[in-house]
Design a protein around this nucleic acid. Structure first.
Length: 879
DNA sequence: CGATCCCGCCACATT
DNA sequence: AATGTGGCGGGATCG
């Protein structure tokens, strides 16, 4: 196209030649000449100029119209430059010129293409999220500006925000140093703490009135202001800069604003901040007084900041329905809890990862690195201390996906499910014994989706709920009650575990691992990571639906994510069907002390890293969406089924139970491996017990011991969000806890929790519960071996072929459900399965080649919208 | 028509 | 003074 234009332009241009802004031209890459022979100005050389330059030249020369067009084009070029269109000939255009031209141009250039958010993504794509420490990446503003085809001014907008989060630091004039997200969590934590100080605790920014949320800041703000000034908070970290002088300038208002803005999110309970509120707060004025103009300006800046944060995957745009109507707002989808503290559980939501492509290399590495780094291992784990290491970071990928659309649907579904679940749950919960249902929550993301539509307080609810579930710890204790009726889906959604049950549910997110005995676990981070990329969307899916609160039956698991548990070969089928639900793991053992530990924030344990990766994935809305749907339906059906099933303990959650049993049986290994889901898997995570068979499974990647297996799958999504819990391992290794007790779980959670969010995963020790009974529906629960076997096979397959559907299915928790209730299957299965399948695939792949997977699948996946995938999957499932 | 937010002028800071 | 930074808000575009 450009070509065309150029050609057209050429004539004119040459003549004028004016000055054009060469300045801008800079370093563009030289293009091929193909096109343009146009003589650029003086220099005949076609090539030399970069596309941009040419354009500019032309533009200047050209009429205004032309300019615009040109500009637009320019934008593209940098990015894609080459698309030469071929035809210069395309007469049509030429002839038509104007009209035609316009069209073209219109297409391209839209204003959005130049948006700061997009620009920021491009910018971020150039650097690895987690650069090796060894490499120091310096960023030249001029260079970047030219490469990206924008004026330097725009780069400042991006860099200033990034700097506020310490992703970059200014080293010299025109030079910035890229740090990546390694310290992001730390920075966020600081901001959160600073925010608390300033703003006071959790604010109540909003209160949601029942359904609608409102945010009121009013008063709360007040305080903020005072402090706000202080930059110290913000930057305390930034030392360098500081040089004294620094303060003075107006400085950095953008930087400061950015930090404050982030703080608002971190302090907010709902994690949603409306623009106007933020603007008011940031303005310092507490009151409305502010002049309108000032307010307006502030809002403008906030948009700039929000675009960058959105690109970073830390927030996403949502709308809040208030009294007056809907207001633009942003929801925090980044990590919420930082190791030390507990905040709210959920935090992230979905992010899509559109970017992946962009980042490509970078991403992978990052992820990988991340994974590698961390492991979330909880070493101590079970024993009380939990030393977990991991940092968790959530990384978010970039949001952006369009896909969200579907979310709504999901949301609605979820909601309904949630409601149902809730009821059930409530009922279930009643039993005190059970602590709470667990919910998995996978869903944080969901809420997002929902949010808009649902006024209800989904968010709030969710958050609260989640915590409650968990067991432990401190995590979130706050919220405990599940219940709000209103609570939206999320609550429900999460899979709750039943108290007694021995299972754990994990959210779908990707990763985590647990270790029972082992401390280390291995996490396979890499895979997970990979998963993120590829599967992100999918992953989340699993998480969602948590609703089931059912008691013991596997349902729980199922609900949100799909857990899978089973897997026998034969079983596979079954399993597959089950799919969606999150898995629950059952871990029989108990952990002894762990709980306590858990209670603590778990700073240590979390597997941050993995999480991070996951988060990314998780975050993506898309994923969540998917999850929701899947989960939802299933849930419902499940519920019913479950209910019925509940009766039969045995059948129901096969996977889980047996697992648990197995675990019980095998006490040995407490360890589990966690495998992150890869993209495909997204939802599920697998846990393997260390013990088992020998190498049955070897994960490709992982070093871990191969485990044989008894694995548990956990939905990845959930995990990400939530802290995982590890059950104590199994058996005895740890101290034996009473079976029933949660302790084990707790402990597990604990560690996990630290990580992530609040949501916890639970693992119940339960073995107790039904091990016998329930034992897994799927196959034989009883036989521990099976599981192992199953898994292994699966794994093997996965590795080998990865594709296997069936295997996959098996793994998933879902299966469990199905097993229990065949009837239900139909519904659920579909939805579920898909997920499962994917998950499996991915997983396996991940195991084998995580990376490869990503690429392959990821791409594919990406291509297809999540929805599509689902559909596809679902279709498949039927068989 | 309100929400977004691109664009780039221009002031202030730094060199 | 030149150049780097970045506040700021007009007004175009989007939805």
């Amino acid at each position: 196209e450009n070509i065309f234009d150029r050609s057209r332009m050429a004539p004119k241009t040459p003549i004028k030649n004016e000055p054009v802004d060469l300045s801008k031209q800079k370093g563009c890459t030289p293009e091929r000449n193909p096109i343009t022979p146009v003589k650029l100005v003086d220099r005949p050389q076609p090539d030399p100029w970069t596309p941009t330059a040419n354009l500019k030249m032309l533009v200047s020369a050209a009429s205004p119209d032309m300019r615009d067009r040109e500009k637009k084009k320019e934008l593209f070029r940098p990015i894609e430059n080459s698309e030469q269109s071929d035809t210069p000939d395309s007469l049509p255009y030429d002839t038509v010129d104007d009209s035609t031209v316009d069209e073209f141009e219109k297409q391209r250039p839209s204003r959005k293409q130049k948006s700061l958010g997009l620009l920021c993504q491009k910018f971020l794509a150039r650097y690895p999220s987690y650069p090796l420490s060894t490499e120091k990446t310096t960023i030249s503003l001029d260079e970047v500006a030219s490469i990206l085809g924008v004026e330097r001014r725009r780069i400042y907008d991006i860099v200033n925000v990034l700097e506020s989060l310490h992703l970059v630091s200014r080293v010299a004039k025109n030079q910035y140093c890229w740090h990546g997200r390694h310290n992001l969590n730390q920075t966020l934590k600081m901001l959160q703490e600073a925010g608390k100080l300033q703003y006071g605790e959790p604010m109540i920014f909003f209160q949601h009135k029942e359904q609608d949320l409102e945010y009121k800041f009013g008063e709360q703000k007040k305080e903020t202001i005072p402090n706000s000034q202080d930059r110290p908070l913000l930057d305390s970290s930034e030392p360098d800069c500081t040089s004294a002088s620094a303060n003075s300038r107006k400085d950095k208002s953008l930087r400061i604003m950015s930090q404050k803005f982030v703080m608002l999110f971190l302090v907010s309970k709902t994690k949603i901040v409306t623009l106007d509120i933020a603007a008011k707060i940031l303005i310092e004025e507490t009151q409305d007084t502010v002049d309108h103009s000032k307010f307006k300006t502030k809002v403008r800046r906030l948009y700039d900041i929000a675009n960058v944060l959105t690109s970073l995957g830390l927030i996403k745009k949502v709308h809040v329905t208030e009294e007056r109507g809907r207001k633009p707002a942003f929801k925090w989808i980044g990590p919420v809890e930082f190791p030390g503290k507990t905040d709210e559980p959920r935090g992230h939501s979905p992010t899509s990862d559109p970017l992946p492509g962009m980042q490509r290399g970078a991403c992978d590495p990052c992820k990988i690195s991340a994974t590698g780094k961390q492991k979330f291992t909880c070493n101590a784990s079970f024993n009380g201390a939990q030393p977990c290491e991991g940092t968790r970071r959530k990384v978010s990928s970039e949001p952006n996906s369009p896909r969200q659309e579907r979310q709504d649907e999901y949301c609605s579904k979820m909601i309904s499910l949630a409601a149902v679940c809730r009821q059930k749950i409530e009922e279930d919960t009643r039993n005190p014994s059970i602590t709470s249902p667990l919910s998995l929550l996978s869903i944080p993301g969901e809420s997002d989706f929902c949010v808009n539509p649902l006024p209800q307080a989904v968010f709030p609810v969710v958050q609260a709920d989640v915590p409650s579930l968990s067991l432990s710890d401190g995590v979130s204790s706050q919220a405990l009650q599940p219940p709000t009726p209103a609570a939206s889906t999320t609550e429900n959604g999460k899979p709750t575990l039943l108290p007694n049950q021995p299972f754990l549910c994990f959210p779908s997110s990707s990763l985590f691992m647990l270790c029972g005995g082992l401390q280390e676990n291995n996490s396979r981070e890499t895979q997970p990571t990979a998963g993120d990329v590829g599967s992100r969307s999918t992953e989340t899916q699993a998480a969602l639906p948590p609703a089931t609160s059912q008691k013991r039956s596997s349902h729980q698991c199922a609900s949100p994510s799909v857990p899978v548990g089973n897997e026998e070969p034969a079983a596979k089928k079954q399993t597959m069907e089950q799919s969606d639900v999150p898995l629950s793991l059952a871990v029989p053992k108990k952990p002894s002390e762990s709980h306590k530990a858990e209670s603590t924030p778990g700073s240590g344990c979390t597997p941050a890293e993995h999480l991070e990766a996951f988060h990314l994935d998780l975050t993506s809305p898309v994923a969540s969406e998917g999850a929701d749907k899947e989960s939802t339906k299933p849930l419902e059906s499940q519920k019913q089924e479950k209910w019925s099933q509940n009766k039969d303990p045995d059948e129901p959650s096969p996977g889980k139970e047996h697992i648990s049993k197995e675990n019980a049986n095998q006490p040995f290994l407490p360890q589990y491996l966690y495998v992150q889901p890869t993209a495909g898997l997204s939802s599920f995570n697998f846990l393997f017990s260390a013990n088992q068979a020998p190498g049955a499974i070897s994960l490709a990647a992982s070093p871990l011991p191969s485990l044989s297996v008894p694995c548990v799958m956990v939905p990845s999504a959930a995990l990400a969000s939530f802290p995982l819990v590890c059950s104590p391992a199994v058996t005895s290794t740890l101290s034996p806890v009473p079976d029933g007790s949660f302790s084990a779980a707790t402990s597990m959670n604990f560690s996990m929790s630290g990580l992530t969010s609040t949501r916890p995963v639970f693992i119940g020790t339960t073995a107790v519960v039904t091990p016998k009974v329930s034992p897994v529906p799927s196959v034989d629960p009883q036989q521990p071996s099976h599981p192992a076997l199953h898994l292994s096979p699966v794994l093997a397959r996965s590795c080998g072929a990865v594709k296997l559907d069936s295997p996959v299915c098996m793994g998933h928790p879902v299966t469990l459900l199905k097993l229990q209730q065949p009837s239900s299957t139909p519904l659920t299965p579909k939805s579920i399965r898909p997920a499962c399948h994917e998950a499996f695939f991915k997983t396996p792949g991940s195991l084998g080649d995580p990376i490869a997977w990503k690429k392959n699948e990821g791409n594919q996946i990406r291509n297809a919208s999540s929805v599509q995938r689902r559909l596809e999957i679902s279709s498949t499932s039927p068989d």
